[in-house]
Design a binder for these strands. Structure first.
Length: 292
DNA sequence: AAACAGGAACCAC
DNA sequence: GTGGTTCCTGTT
């Protein structure tokens, strides 16, 4: 793969294992929207761009060449997903699941944005989460003009510290509003240090994260996987719970047991397995009739 | 229009 | 530590 400049941005030439829909519509991120033509527009770390796929080339319209290392990291382009898929395909269920999410990649997102977004994800659905995250960005982030339209960066802890519980409720955060205020304060005032947590191993980082208000085991696993490079994390949401119970376990095993089983079974690739399974579960809905 | 979907907190035990 | 209930809001 190489990266070139073009008139409106940059091009990633000859990218493998890369499908926009699988990457941006698989529940790992909330700020990218399908423009109804298969391209996706959104904001990452203050950069508003549009992704357009053409064959094996990916256009990042609005992308700057001096940000090329940022995009390589964000899109996890240095990882060999073919190899991961080969390893996971030894398991028959995963072999099937991978077919449904061929081009998934796990993004490397900002820890703070990911943490707040997944606090909002508790007992919530993707369109609602997206709306709340968008509202927070519009109210507390910085304006970016792209293609003649307004976009907003996700606020850093300092900017989000101006948010009150009332304002966050208006943004659609519901009962999670006080958790966001409290956790933002913990981070801003240095009692929680996301960079330090990121430097710990998966188990210790998990222990630290669940000390924070609004973060339970599942949300902690999402933060670890989607923003801290912990690919051995295995977040168990309702969808993953359903596939796991259907294909591997009894219908009544606890979330913790499913988590332990997944981490044990898929090891260093547990996070990737989780993504394929999540996508698979959502495709299976209605067809095979997953229980619960 | 009542039922349902979705994880964490919180309180019992 | 496990189990039951509550939180909020849109959709069916």
């Amino acid at each position: 793969m190489e990266i070139l400049e073009y008139s409106e941005g940059i091009i990633l030439k000859d990218v493998k294992d890369f499908e926009l829909k699988h990457i941006f519509d698989c529940g790992q991120c909330f700020r990218w929207n399908d423009d109804r033509d298969g391209s996706y527009t959104g904001v990452a770390s203050g950069r508003a761009v549009r992704f357009i796929k053409d064959g094996s080339d990916v256009y990042i319209k609005g992308g700057k060449i001096h940000d090329k290392d940022f995009w390589i990291h964000y899109l996890d382009l240095n990882r060999d997903y073919g190899k991961i898929k080969d390893e996971l395909s030894k398991d028959e269920t995963l072999k099937e699941a991978i077919k449904h999410g061929e081009g998934i990649r796990i993004l490397n997102q900002e820890p703070f944005e990911t943490l707040i977004s997944f606090i909002i994800s508790a007992n919530n659905r993707i369109p609602m989460i997206k709306r709340a995250v968008e509202n927070i960005s519009r109210n507390f982030g910085e304006k970016i003009i792209f293609e003649g339209r307004e976009y907003y960066s996700f606020p850093d802890p300092e900017r989000l510290s101006y948010a009150t519980v009332e304002k966050l409720e208006e943004c659609g955060c519901g009962f999670r509003a006080p958790y966001i205020v409290e956790t933002t304060r913990e981070i801003l005032e240095g009692r929680a240090d996301l960079e330090h947590i990121k430097s710990l191993d998966t188990d210790n980082a998990h222990r630290e994260l669940i000390k924070l208000k609004g973060i339970g085991p599942k949300v902690a696993d999402c933060i670890l996987l989607f923003s801290m490079g912990k690919h051995d994390a295995f977040p168990v949401d309702v969808w993953v719970k359903r596939v796991m119970q259907h294909f591997y376990l009894a219908p009544d095993v606890s979330l913790k047991k499913i988590r332990d089983f997944g981490r044990e079974k898929f090891g260093k690739n547990a996070g990737f397995a989780q993504q394929y399974l999540f996508y698979y579960a959502r495709d299976l809905k209605g067809k095979e009739g997953l229980k619960n």
